[in-house]
Design a protein around this nucleic acid. Structure first.
Length: 884
RNA sequence: GGAACUAUAGCUCAGAUGGUUAGAGUACCACGUUGACAUCGUGGGGGUCACUGGUUCGAGUCCAGUUAGUUCCACCA
C-alpha cells in the first residue's frame, strides 16, 4: 500500500463544520451591503422566541431558507437574510414568573412592574440568544450584523408609529366586549390564541318555573350550570309552536329567585336540546349577541380570577368548577334537575398554559379588521403574494373573509406598553408617538399611561419592514422590501402571515413578500407530533453532533414535498450520512489521482465517457435550477443525489480509472483529471445550498478559483455540451454491461473473476462498442470481448440477453442449466410479448393515430421495432437451446 | 357543520403542464475485500398506484362519488 494520502476514509463532520462556519463569519460572506445595481433577494427569519430551544421545526424552516438564500447568493443577487428574535410577551413572562416562583418564591406582583421587567431583561440577556447560537450550528447563513429584536428601540418605535397611526384613523379602539380571558394567565387573549378541543362534558336539563302558571316549567339544557346566576333571559325560537304562547312571559330563575323574560330569537335551534336556551350575556359569546339584540342586562358572575363574584349570591368566592357541582346539587335538591346527559363539548383552552378560557365582558383594545383586510385579500387573490403550495391561499382567504376584530391588549407587563395616556383631570385619552408628561389638552401633569401591553403578534406583524428601519425611509427598506419569500409552517398562517400582509399593505402600501413558502411539521417515526409531554422530540443538536449538520439538512429537505408533514427517521439519517461519506470518498479518489495536474497542460480530446458525463452534468444543472425556481427543493436534491451517486460514482469514475492510473499518457490523464474536477466542482456547487460544509471542504481541496464555494457563481447549463447521441451510445453500452452482470449473477458464474463475452451490435452501435471495448471489459468483468454484427449467427452454448441495439452472449459452456436458461428467456420473452401487444394495440387504433401528437406516435413506432428485435433475438436463442 | 390534505413496493416517501416497461431509500435474498468508499459494490425478488364510475385515442396523474386516516376552521346551549 503506497497510500500516502492522509485524507481519512470516513468523513468526520464535527471539525470541518466548525472550521468553515468560523471562516465564513470571519470573511463576512453573510453580510452584503445594499447594492441598488443588483437584483435584491431578501428574507426575514421567522423570529424565534427568546424562550425557545431549537427543535426540528426550526431546523427544517431555517434549512429551507438557507438553501434559497445560499442559492441566490451564488446567483449573484444582492442577498440579505435578516435574523432576529421575538420577545414573545406572554410566553416569556410565564417562563420568568415560573423561575421567580421556583427560585425566590415570589410573584411578579411582589416585585412590581419595574423590578419585574428588569428581571425579564436580565433573563433575556442571559438566555435570549441561546437559540441563535443553536441556529448557527445548522450552518445557516444569516446576516448576523443585521440581527433585530422586537423590543429594540427601532422596532419599538415602529410599534408606536403603527399603533398611533391606526388609532388616529379610528382603526384601533377601546371597547367593552365579550373577550377570551385566561384566568390562569390573567389576561385577555385574541381568538387565535384560544385552542378548541372536545372535552367530555354533560348537558344538564333544568326546569325553570313559569311565573304565574302553577306547575308549569320551561326546561332548558345547559353545559355550564355555574352560569345560571348570570342568566338574564330564556330564549326560544320565534317559530317554535311549543313555546309560542310563552314569549313575553317570565320564568323564575332557580336558586337566584329572580324573574327573567322569555324572549324569541332566531339563534335558537328548535331541534337541539329542549328548544329553550338560557341566556347569559356575560359569559357566552352567543348569548352576548342575543343580549345585544334583545337589550338584555348582563350580569358578571365569574370574575377575572375564575371565582364566583358577589353577583352569584351564596356562591361568591367559590371556584367556577366547585360552584358548578354545588349548583347542580342544589338544583337536584330543589327537584328542578330533570336529567343529565353526556355530551362532548368544544372548550377553549389557553394556547400558552392550556387552562380553560373563560368568555368574559371586559374593556380592551381592538383593531378594526374589516377595513384593513380588503387590500390584504386582494393582493393574494391577484397573485402578487403567492402561497406555495397554492392550496394555502384558500385557507388564508376564507379566514380573512370571516375575520373578527383583533383584541390586542394583554394584561401583562413584558411587551410594548400601549402608548395611550389618560388625563386624571380632564379625562382625555390620547395615543402618542412619544411619552407624555402632561395632558396636551388641559396641561395637567396628572396623567397616567395605560397599564396593558400589546399582543406579541402586533410587533411581529410589522417584522418585514420594521426590521429594515421603518418608519424611516432607509436604503435597506427601498432595496429589500418587499422581501422575496417568507418561509414558515402552516400552523402560523393566521397568527403571523395574515397580520404581516395586512399591516404591510396598510403601512407600506405594498406586499411584504412575493412568496409564502409553507412547510409542514416534522413528526416522529410513528407520525406523532413531537411534543414535550410525549417526550418524543428529537433534538436537532443531537443529530448534528452525531451525524453533522449537512446530513440533518439534506435529510429534512429530501423525501418530502412542500406543505406536507414529514417523519423523522433515524434510518433516513443514516442513509444520508452514507451519501455524505460517498461524496467524501469520491472526492478523496479525485484528490489521490490529481498529482501532477495542471489545468493549463495539453489535453487529449474528450472520450465518450467524458462527453457523456459532461452532457449529464448540463442536464442536471438545468433541471436542478428549474426545480429550485419552483421551490421543489426535495426534487432538486434528489437529482443532485442521483447524479453524483448514480452517474459520477457508479459509472464515470469507474470508466476513467485506467486513464488516471496510466501516467504514461499525460494528455489523456490530464483530460480525465480536468473533466473529473469540472464535474465534481459543479456538483459541489449544486449541492452546496443543501450541504454547505462538506461541499466547502471538498471544493477547497479541489482546484478552484475564489475564496469560498459559497460565493462561487452558480453553474449555468451549457447547451453545447448536451449531446443526445453520446447519451444514446452510453446507454447502449451501459445496458450491455448490466446485461452481462445480470446473466453472470443468475448462474453465479465465475464470481469475482473475468470471463469472455460476445456482443453483436447493429450498425449504429457497433463502432461505439469497437471504440470502447474496454468499457465493457472493465465494468462487465470481461476478459475477451468478441464483437460482431447483429446479423451474425448467434454463438452456441451461450446465455443471451437482447438490449436495444445489441445482443449480448456469455459463452458459459457447462455452467448453463438448459432448462433454467430456457425458463429465464421465456420469462423475458413473455414480458416483451405483452409489451408488444400493447404497443401494437395502440398503433392499430385509428383514434390514436389521428389524435395523438405525431411525436408520441413516432415514439410508439420505434418502441415497436425495438421490442420486435428483442423478441426475435430471444426466440432465436430459445430455439437454439432446445436443439441441445 | 364547513374546508383542506393523505391513500403508490414490508416500511418511509418521490412521481410539474395526462403518453416511462411506475421510481428511490430502507428492509429482505444471493454473490463480491478488482488500487475512493463494507457508511461499499453487483445482481435479484417485491406494486390490479384505496374503491366505484366518468372525461380522453390514452389516467397513478383530470372530474364526480365512496371508504379510511390526518389536520384546520366553526357560537349549536
Amino acid at each position: 500500500m503506497e497510500e500516502e494520502n492522509n485524507i481519512p476514509k470516513v468523513y468526520d463532520p464535527a471539525e470541518v463544520e466548525k472550521k468553515w462556519y468560523a471562516y465564513w463569519i470571519e470573511h463576512g460572506y453573510f453580510h452584503q451591503p445594499v447594492d441598488r445595481s443588483r437584483k435584491p433577494f431578501s428574507v426575514v427569519i421567522p423570529p424565534p422566541n427568546i424562550t425557545g430551544k431549537l427543535h426540528m421545526g426550526h431546523a427544517l424552516d431555517n434549512t429551507l431558507q438557507d438553501i434559497l438564500v445560499r442559492w441566490h447568493r451564488m446567483m449573484g443577487d444582492n442577498t440579505c437574510w435578516l435574523p432576529g428574535y421575538d420577545h414573545a410577551g406572554l410566553a416569556t413572562q410565564i417562563k420568568v414568573e415560573e423561575e421567580l416562583k421556583k427560585k425566590e418564591g415570589l410573584t411578579r406582583y411582589d416585585l412590581g412592574r419595574e423590578e419585574f421587567l428588569k428581571r425579564v431583561w436580565k433573563w433575556k440577556e442571559e438566555y435570549g440568544d441561546r437559540i441563535v447560537t443553536q441556529l448557527k450550528s445548522l450552518g445557516i447563513s444569516c446576516d448576523w450584523d443585521r440581527q433585530r429584536f422586537t423590543m429594540d428601540e427601532g422596532l419599538s418605535r415602529a410599534v408606536r408609529e403603527a399603533f398611533v397611526s391606526l388609532y388616529e384613523k379610528g382603526l384601533i379602539y377601546k371597547g367593552t366586549r365579550i373577550i377570551n380571558w385566561c384566568v390562569n394567565c390573567r389576561t385577555a387573549l385574541s381568538d387565535v390564541e384560544v385552542e378548541h378541543q372536545d372535552d367530555d362534558g354533560h348537558l344538564w336539563y333544568v326546569k325553570y318555573p313559569i311565573e304565574g302558571e302553577k306547575d308549569r316549567y320551561l326546561t332548558i339544557a345547559t353545559s355550564r350550570p355555574e352560569t345560571i346566576p348570570g342568566d338574564t333571559a330564556v330564549a326560544v325560537n320565534p317559530d317554535d309552536d311549543r313555546y309560542k304562547d310563552l314569549v313575553g312571559k317570565q320564568v323564575r330563575l332557580p336558586i337566584m329567585d329572580r324573574l327573567i323574560p322569555i324572549v324569541a330569537d332566531e339563534y335558537v335551534d328548535v331541534k337541539f336540546g329542549t328548544g329553550a336556551v338560557k341566556i347569559t350575556p356575560a359569559h357566552d359569546p352567543n348569548d352576548y349577541e342575543v343580549g345585544q339584540r334583545q337589550k338584555l342586562d348582563s350580569i358578571t358572575v365569574i370574575g377575572l380570577d375564575g371565582k364566583m363574584t358577589k353577583e352569584s349570591g351564596r356562591y361568591e368566592g367559590q371556584d367556577r368548577y366547585e360552584c358548578r357541582k354545588n349548583i347542580v346539587k342544589d338544583l337536584d335538591d330543589l327537584g328542578l334537575l330533570v336529567k343529565i346527559e353526556d355530551a362532548p363539548h368544544a372548550v377553549g383552552h389557553c394556547q400558552r398554559c392550556h387552562h380553560v378560557v373563560e368568555p368574559l365582558i371586559s374593556t380592551q383594545w381592538f383593531v378594526k379588521m374589516k377595513p384593513l383586510v380588503k387590500a390584504a385579500v386582494e393582493c393574494v387573490e391577484d397573485g402578487r403574494v403567492e402561497f406555495v403550495p397554492n392550496r394555502f391561499t384558500k385557507t388564508y382567504t376564507t379566514w380573512m373573509d370571516n375575520i373578527h376584530d383583533w383584541c390586542i391588549s394583554r394584561q401583562i407587563w413584558w411587551g410594548h406598553r400601549i402608548p395611550v395616556w389618560y388625563c386624571d383631570d380632564c379625562g382625555a385619552q390620547m395615543a402618542s408617538r412619544t411619552d407624555l408628561t402632561e395632558c396636551p389638552k388641559c396641561h395637567s401633569k396628572h396623567i397616567h399611561q395605560d397599564e396593558d401591553a400589546l399582543d406579541t403578534w402586533f410587533s411581529s406583524g410589522l417584522w418585514p419592514f420594521s426590521t429594515f428601519g421603518w418608519p424611516d425611509k432607509t436604503d435597506e427598506l427601498k432595496q429589500f422590501y418587499p422581501t422575496s419569500v417568507l418561509v414558515t409552517g402552516y400552523d402560523i398562517i393566521f397568527f403571523w402571515v395574515a397580520r404581516m400582509i395586512t399591516l404591510g399593505m396598510e403601512f407600506m402600501k405594498d406586499i411584504p413578500f412575493h412568496h409564502v413558502f409553507i412547510h409542514g411539521l416534522v413528526r416522529d417515526e410513528q407520525g406523532r407530533k413531537m411534543s414535550k409531554s410525549l417526550g418524543n422530540g428529537i433534538d436537532p443538536l443531537e443529530v448534528v453532533d452525531k451525524y453533522g449538520a449537512d446530513t440533518l439538512r439534506f435529510m429534512l429537505i429530501t423525501g418530502n414535498t412542500p406543505g406536507n408533514d414529514m417523519r423523522f427517521y433515524w434510518n433516513r439519517i443514516e442513509a444520508t450520512r452514507n451519501f455524505a461519506n460517498k461524496i467524501w470518498n469520491a472526492s478523496r479518489f479525485a484528490l489521490m489521482n490529481l498529482d501532477g495536474y495542471d489545468a493549463k497542460a495539453k489535453r487529449a480530446p474528450f472520450t465518450l465517457a467524458d462527453q457523456w458525463i459532461l452532457s449529464r452534468l448540463q442536464h442536471t444543472i438545468k433541471d436542478v435550477t428549474s426545480f429550485l425556481e419552483r421551490f421543489e427543493l426535495g426534487e432538486a436534491g434528489r437529482l443532485i443525489y442521483d447524479f453524483i451517486w448514480g452517474e459520477v460514482c457508479d459509472w464515470y469514475i469507474e470508466l476513467i480509472k485506467p486513464r488516471l492510473y496510466n501516467k504514461e499518457n499525460p494528455e489523456e490523464r490530464a483530460t480525465a483529471q480536468y473533466v473529473l474536477c469540472k464535474v465534481l466542482g459543479d456538483a459541489m456547487k449544486l449541492l452546496h445550498p443543501y450541504m454547505p460544509f462538506i461541499t466547502e471542504e471538498i471544493w477547497q481541496h479541489l482546484p478552484h478559483e475564489g475564496s469560498s464555494i459559497m460565493i462561487a457563481p452558480w453553474p449555468v447549463a451549457d447547451e453545447a455540451l448536451m449531446n443526445d447521441d453520446v447519451e444514446a451510445s452510453m446507454t447502449v453500452m451501459m445496458d450491455a454491461i448490466k446485461a452481462i452482470r445480470n446473466m453472470r449473477a443468475e448462474v453465479n458464474a465465475a464470481p469475482g473473476k473475468k470471463a469472455p463475452a460476445i456482443i453483436l451490435a447493429d450498425e449504429t452501435f457497433r463502432p461505439v462498442f469497437e471504440a470502447h471495448k474496454e468499457y465493457v471489459q472493465r465494468l462487465g468483468t470481461v476478459d475477451t470481448l468478441t464483437l460482431g454484427d447483429s446479423r451474425d449467427a448467434a454463438p452456441e452454448n451461450a446465455m443471451t440477453a437482447v438490449v436495444n441495439g445489441a445482443k449480448v452472449y456469455l459463452p458459459l459452456k457447462g455452467l448453463i442449466d438448459v432448462e433454467k436458461e430456457l425458463a429465464r428467456l421465456q420469462k423475458e420473452a413473455d414480458g416483451a410479448a405483452r409489451e408488444l401487444k400493447r404497443v401494437e394495440g395502440k398503433l392499430s387504433n385509428e383514434n390514436f393515430l389521428s389524435k395523438a401528437p405525431e411525436a408520441v406516435v413516432e415514439k410508439e413506432r420505434t418502441k415497436k421495432t425495438e421490442i420486435e428485435t428483442r423478441l426475435n433475438g430471444l426466440n432465436e436463442q430459445m430455439e437454439q437451446l432446445r436443439k441441445l
